[in-house]
């Protein structure tokens, strides 16, 4: 098995609510996986489990051959390797853009302040945000905030990046700039797992699309297979409902 990331039989329940009932998936290095599914189908929960923000009840999450969900494994180290970006950006409002990006570099990854600032500046320049380094999040547009949030996760050089509906909170005209950034990250070879409602984007960027239903991956395949010619009845119903909107 030479998958970069393997999710094996992951179960997660909140009280009686069994959200994930055995999700399994192998992701080769550099692949992009898009999770689609109805609201409440567990897309966010799955991503939070992979980032170890939520402890899983059963199963394994294997990254580069190491079971990072094993009880003895240092979750803080694993989280640096698995970046997570949220729908609502969750930037730290009391810190400027630079400090948002360098905080975990200096405090969790043990980087020198100057080195951290230099690499943050590189990323900001690369993604056209260099002039915002000293700005506070409240003075940025939603699209800019979300790009900073992605850069904040990328700055830690994670080997996998998880994106949870990162464009869902944005005005339509701001979606493009964020999707461009993600496309660029894909070119650089980043392994990415994303929950999304943007079917056309999933179609153009994903290697694999997974339809989550009933706590499992109900159907998966290439975008052409799953989005254009779904085999499962449930997938068809879901896509029909989404497309009508």
């Amino acid at each position: 098995m030479n998958a970069h990331l393997s999710i094996r039989g992951v179960h997660k329940a909140f009280g009686r609510n069994e959200v994930l009932r055995g999700v399994s998936l192998d992701v080769p290095r550099g692949n992009v996986v898009a999770f689609i599914g109805a609201s409440g189908s567990g897309k966010s929960t799955l991503l939070r489990c992979i980032n170890l923000l939520e402890p899983i009840d059963d199963g394994e999450i294997v990254l580069d051959g190491t079971d990072i969900s094993a009880p003895g494994f240092d979750a803080n180290v694993a989280r640096r390797d698995v970046g997570l970006v949220f729908q609502n950006y969750n930037l730290f409002p009391h810190m400027n853009v630079m400090r948002n990006i360098t905080l975990a570099l200096t405090h969790a990854a043990g980087a020198e302040k100057s080195a951290a600032e230099a690499s943050a500046m590189d990323l900001l320049t690369r993604f056209g945000l260099a002039d915002k380094a000293r700005a506070y999040p409240e003075h940025l547009s939603g699209g800019q905030q979300q790009r900073v949030a992605i850069i904040r996760a990328v700055a830690l050089k994670p080997s996998v990046l998880l994106l949870d509906e990162v464009t869902a909170a944005l005005d339509p005209q701001l979606v493009g700039e964020v999707l461009d950034l993600i496309a660029e990250l894909r070119t650089s070879g980043m392994t990415m797992l994303m929950a999304t409602h943007e079917m056309s984007f999933a179609h153009s960027i994903a290697d694999t699309v997974c339809f989550l239903h009933d706590g499992t991956i109900h159907e998966s395949g290439t975008p052409q297979e799953v989005l254009d010619a779904p085999r499962e009845e449930r997938t068809r119903t879901f896509l029909a409902r989404t497309n009508r909107r």
Partner: peptide
């Protein structure tokens, strides 16, 4: 979500 963001970046609970 602020705490979640901090933890997701690998900061400890105390940090």
């Amino acid at each position: 979500s602020q705490r979640a963001a901090a933890r997701s970046l690998g900061l400890t609970h105390g940090q």
